[in-house]
Design a protein around this nucleic acid. Sequence first.
RNA 1: GCCGCAUUAGCUCCAACAGGUAGAGCAAUUCCAUGGUAAGGAAGAGGUUGCUGGUUCGAGUCCAGCAUGCGGCACCA
Length: 639
Amino acid sequence: MITITFKDGNEKLYESGITVEEIAKDLSSSLKKNSVAGLVNDQLYDLNRPILTDAQLEIITKDHPQAFEVLNHSTAHLMAQAVKRLYPDAKFGVGPAIKDGFYYDIATEHVIREEDLPKIEQEMQRIIKQQESMTRFELTKEEAREKFKDDPYKLELIDELDDNEIISIYTQGEFIDLCRGGHVGNTRHIKHFKLLSIAGAYWRGDSERDMLQRIYGTSWFTKEDLAHHLTVLKERKERDHRKLGKELKIFELNKDAGQGLALWLPNGYTVRKVLEDYVYKLERKAGYYHISTPVLGTKKLYQISGHFDHYQDHMFPLMSRDGEDFVLRPMSCPHHMIVYKSDLRSYRDLPIRYAEIVTMHRYEASGALTGLERVRAMTLTDSHIFAREDQIKEEVLSAYKLILQAISDLGLAIDYVELALRDETKGKFHDNDQLWDLAERLMTELLEEEGIEYTAVKGEAAFYGPKIDIQVRTAMDHVITMSTVQLDFLLPERFDLTYIGKDGEKHRPVVIHRGLISTWERLMSILLEQYKGAFPTWLAPTQIKLIPVNNASHLEYVQRLHERFIDEDFRSDIDYREEKLGYKIREAQTQKVPYQLVVGDQEVTNKTVTYRKYGEKDQVTLPLDAFIDYMHDIIRTKK
RNA sequence: GCCGCAUUAGCUCCAACAGGUAGAGCAAUUCCAUGGUAAGGAAGAGGUUGCUGGUUCGAGUCCAGCAUGCGGCACCA
């Protein structure tokens, strides 16, 4: 007999070899129904894996955070078995559970296509009906090598394990897989799944190695959950900035204009201009000074900075004139270093904060280009802060706070903050231990003192220094770096930047790179998806759409209103077309204009306006001046 | 860059699918209708089916290459 201790501290005696499923059944029938796996002494156990010794047990039920993972991992195995039946030559890579489902990497002569997915699903259903037990076995490394001798990918994984490590495998019917486990015990527990897409994926994420075929899928405990997830996926597509950008005439991508070279249409540029002005003001208030430098620079400038050697793969090729080589700049740092050097600096001058609306060009791999999210020509307000060592902490903090402000004003939310530190890899990081230690200590202290939750990641620092990255999750569920504060000890050396200290001697300043809210391109893609194209009024390309009921009798008043609105700095437009009222209203709605004003006899006679706010049903009639005050208020408060 | 898929009018489209030289809705144009909160009616027009070759009596349809896009992977100091 063995003693099982439960989460609540209760103990119970069982026969050795009892399974999680049997214990669950013993406790209650509803528990049995809801159990997915068990945590035995904090180790994941399948429902049908025997427990041999005294143990602590937590039963993982369907609502447990790990349950979804176990289910999807098992579904991946189930799919692999089905694939192996249909395409017997299939070899398998890895097949883990991921955030919303699972995938399995497969090598087979057969090119798997979209139309094969229903066939694979059918085969999976068949295996479920067969109620195959998913059973765990433990082997030595040698035995495992023998079992998987025809599976080169599995062999490679086995070879990397320690010689005396116990290796577990799972069988279900004729199918065997190398696997650490945590499974649902029997294929009959898998019910509601769908295969979603096929993609290529490099073996072990290495672009030098084989490309396998990856099938993505998703698996849920209830029909409703699956249906809900599929709806979410569909709704994501409705938010796709590429679709919205076309519908709302925000930007254009055209192969003749150039791959990854976005053209901003009037609506898009209007939003961008509002953002540019907003950032300019924000930065002025925070003590930044704006400069302007060219998109072209000499090769020499980029040799001094070191980018020419380090970054060349991401740069467009050289241009030459009059015996001088030029590059299209991929960033602004080198130019800003030169600006710093344009004058002799005293310790009293620091910190100096330069900001610039920088257009830059980067050669991005063709497969990486995605709408406005990843482009080859991009513009952002870039900034470099030149500071003394004793100012680092304060300057990083104020940059961080500025970022928070911007993210909050734009109605976005931080997903997580990452502190990227160096690791021991020699050559990967600029060699200056003393400064690295100082900088990493300061940045850590700062985050701790401010009570900012962060994830420290070793080895992710920039070549030239540690950084704080602010990650945002898009409506499309992509995590991207929105903002960044990076310390740099290298550029000041390479450009021999100095300031005169109190002691009359030359000292080296530190550079802080600050990216505020990504590039306008990427920000636009995020905002479009975030707001589903319905921009808050302060950002909307058109804030007010004026719709005369009848052009002949109301247009004159409408034009007077329009002029007044323009004088008030509202972005107003008139729908002049000779169309039915309903037709013009429909267009104002589909274009998601925040304030739609229908103007007829009533408004002309009473000198009022009647508006309907986008997304609301109610019409509101106000005296003109009251409406103007209201609009100013809405815009000022960034609603 | 790599794997797979796609590309038909300004936009959208599982219109054309034994290969027989293109079809709809919306938009745009003209005419009629003058309308109070999501599509009024009519007419005409709009296409070298992404590009270049090939197979064929004949190609949107089959084949090859290229371009661009999409889903991923790799990349994103």
